[in-house]
Amino acid sequence: MLARLASPRTGGLLALAVVIALLPLALTNKYFYDIAVLVGLNAIVCVGLNLLIGYAGQISLGHAGFFGLGAYGSAILASRYGWPPLAAMLTTTLAVAALAYLVGRPILRLKGHYLAMATLGLGVIIFMVITTEDKYTGGPDGIAVVPLSIGGFVLQGERIWYWVVGALLLVAVWLALNLIESPAGRALRALHSSEVGAEVVGINAAEHKVMAFVISAVFASVAGSLAAHYSGFVTPGKVAFLHSIELVTMVVFGGMASTFGAVVGAAVLTTLPQLLAAFEDYEMMLFGAVMMGTMIFMPRGVVPSLARLFQSRRQQPSSGEGSGT
């Protein structure tokens, strides 16, 4: 029973639920709630992106593009064309999934830096389309978005959004944990380590990479739609290359191939700029320095590095095994 609680799926989910439930005790004003909501939305993106980068080992430097498509899709359909927000969100998500599937097939044949280039290019192209087609998107000025309403109920205010996003984050984490522990998830991890090794036991590597790509795009798109409704406004900044980089950094910072790492990464790197804002002119420089520093000193990311430290502490008295190759 204890072992079960300590397993990442049950124990981790429980711990996350407790954190989400208790966090409001520390959120003493609206501004804090606002940051918490942003953390949650980024965490949803990162949990999906981590399936692609951390588990399947395929980099993407363009996921802000999918986030942006989600945000703008919802904004345009719901605000310009008056669709019910949920229908707009669903349609947008399906369209993004279809797009990710179509571009994913050729793109994911590429490896390493070539894949980085292609995904970066995809993100930049989406960004350019959004800034240029101002008839629909409002161009660089952005576009106002109606609030999210479900039935007759309008979701407004940081507190309500906090609980909605918190619940959705739990769902996202639960889905990701389930997937990782399934045959398909093992296939992803296997092809990350050795593509031929995975193929010769019958795994269609290309198909699985595309699957991870589509899932991660869907997570990003949904988070984008929610973000648009939440803030009531979208601008192209959220679609830019730099936002893609921020997302990848969150995943790597928290720890690749660690779902909870992705959540931690999103939490730290979303709050950090708020803290650094106090340093005004030095904010950008400090942010860059933190990025470099963590990656140099904890190349595996925070959560796996800490877990390792914890483990080696516990094992020290018995033996030094587990160091491996």
């Binding site: 889905l175 389930n178 997937l179 522990e181 399934s182 045959p183 398909a184 998830g185 093992r186 296939a187 991890r189 296997a190 990350h192 380590s193 050795s194 031929v196 090794g197 995975a198 010769v200 036991v201 019958g202 795994i203 699957m211 191939a257 190759t325």
Partner: peptide, 30 residues
């Protein structure tokens, strides 16, 4: 071509992929 990012047991479980594979929905919802 061992999967070094997994446990030994999981390596063998990957070998069972063809018998075990299931739909994406089933995997996500366990």
């Amino acid at each position: 071509q061992v999967f070094f990012n997994m446990s030994a047991l999981e390596n063998v479980m990957v070998g069972r992929y063809m018998q075990e594979r299931c739909g994406l929905a089933a995997a996500l919802l366990r």
